Amino acid sequence: MTATLVYVLHQAAFGAIAAAGFGVLFNFRPVSLAWCAASGAAALAVRTLGLQVGWSLEAASFTAASTVTVAAVALLRQDRGPSASAVAVAGCIPMVPGAFFAQALLGLFALTAPQGAPEGPTVVATLASMLRVVFTLAGIGAGIAIPLHILRRREF
């Protein structure tokens, strides 16, 4: 239990740092950078907990993006207005699976090399990595878009 908590806090801390960094890249105001860090920490904590209980990366990323978007819109709608959704996006960017994307690109490079790798295993590994990236990005995108669409209505 303690090891899991330490791991979740570790992931949350680095999610906060990464999300605040993306907030700087997006030219957010200093007050909004704190909200970006909080949303990044929450996103990575929820995703890590989902992965710890056995969810797929895609499902855990969708749940984390949904949770962060609902929380950001609920907490920041009055204070930040439309930029609440931008804070949610900045918090979700650290969940993009860069390692899988790198594996997919390296596999594509290996396949197109003059003295290419054995094609069967390389193609399978490359496609598997690329599909993980595509479905994870789709999960993050849907996790942001669906709550924003639902919470945009006045009756909620």
Results as ranks from 00 to 15, higher is better:
residue 67 T to I: 01
residue 154 R to F: 10
residue 100 F to M: 12
residue 18 A to I: 08
residue 26 F to G: 00
residue 116 G to F: 05
residue 129 S to L: 00
residue 94 P to R: 07
residue 149 H to F: 13
residue 24 V to H: 01
residue 64 A to I: 12
residue 142 A to C: 15
residue 147 P to S: 14
residue 116 G to N: 04
residue 99 A to L: 14
residue 154 R to P: 06
residue 9 L to T: 12
residue 77 R to D: 14
residue 37 A to P: 13
residue 106 L to H: 15
residue 133 V to I: 13
residue 12 A to I: 01
residue 13 A to N: 05
residue 93 I to N: 01
residue 95 M to G: 01
residue 79 D to R: 14
residue 35 W to Y: 15
residue 147 P to Y: 06
residue 37 A to W: 06
residue 49 L to W: 10
residue 92 C to R: 05
residue 113 A to I: 11
residue 23 G to P: 03
residue 27 N to V: 10
residue 9 L to E: 01
residue 52 Q to I: 10
residue 132 R to C: 08
residue 84 A to F: 08
residue 52 Q to M: 11
residue 89 V to Q: 01
residue 120 G to W: 03
residue 39 S to D: 05
residue 144 I to Q: 04
residue 38 A to Q: 01
residue 141 G to K: 00
residue 45 A to D: 00
residue 132 R to W: 08
residue 5 L to S: 12
residue 122 T to A: 13
residue 28 F to Y: 09
residue 76 L to F: 10
residue 53 V to A: 01
residue 154 R to Y: 11
residue 79 D to S: 13
residue 55 W to E: 04
residue 114 P to S: 02
residue 156 F to R: 09
residue 89 V to A: 01
residue 106 L to P: 03
residue 130 M to W: 12
residue 9 L to S: 09
residue 94 P to T: 04
residue 36 C to H: 00
residue 21 G to I: 14
residue 65 A to E: 01
residue 20 A to F: 03
residue 136 T to A: 03
residue 49 L to S: 02
residue 46 V to L: 03
residue 10 H to A: 06
residue 122 T to E: 02
residue 131 L to E: 04
residue 15 G to V: 12
residue 46 V to C: 02
residue 49 L to G: 01
residue 94 P to K: 03
residue 145 A to G: 03
residue 20 A to K: 00
residue 152 R to N: 15
residue 28 F to H: 10
residue 50 G to R: 06
residue 105 L to D: 00
residue 105 L to G: 06
residue 72 A to N: 14
residue 33 L to W: 11
residue 134 V to F: 14
residue 108 L to I: 15
residue 108 L to A: 15
residue 17 I to Y: 07
residue 28 F to C: 06
residue 53 V to T: 13
residue 10 H to I: 08
residue 41 A to Q: 06
residue 62 F to L: 15
residue 61 S to H: 13
residue 54 G to L: 09
residue 33 L to F: 13
residue 114 P to D: 04
residue 102 A to V: 13
residue 98 G to V: 11
residue 126 T to C: 09
residue 11 Q to L: 07
residue 110 A to Q: 15
residue 65 A to V: 07
residue 74 A to I: 07
residue 100 F to S: 09
residue 149 H to E: 06
residue 119 E to V: 14
residue 4 T to K: 00
residue 74 A to G: 06
residue 52 Q to G: 07
residue 92 C to T: 11
residue 64 A to Q: 11
residue 68 V to M: 11
residue 142 A to I: 14
residue 26 F to M: 05
residue 10 H to C: 09
residue 71 A to H: 05
residue 50 G to T: 10
residue 10 H to D: 09
residue 42 A to L: 15
residue 2 T to H: 06
residue 156 F to C: 11
residue 140 I to Q: 03
residue 32 S to R: 07
residue 102 A to W: 11
residue 10 H to V: 07
residue 79 D to G: 07
residue 132 R to K: 14
residue 129 S to H: 06
residue 134 V to Y: 00
residue 61 S to K: 04
residue 16 A to Q: 03
residue 60 A to V: 07
residue 29 R to F: 11
residue 62 F to A: 15
residue 136 T to F: 05
residue 140 I to G: 04
residue 35 W to A: 03
residue 43 A to K: 06
residue 132 R to A: 14
residue 77 R to Q: 09
residue 26 F to E: 00
residue 41 A to V: 08
residue 118 P to N: 14
residue 102 A to K: 03
residue 50 G to Q: 08
residue 87 V to K: 02
residue 59 A to L: 08
residue 43 A to P: 04
residue 72 A to Q: 12
residue 88 A to S: 07
residue 12 A to F: 10
residue 63 T to I: 13
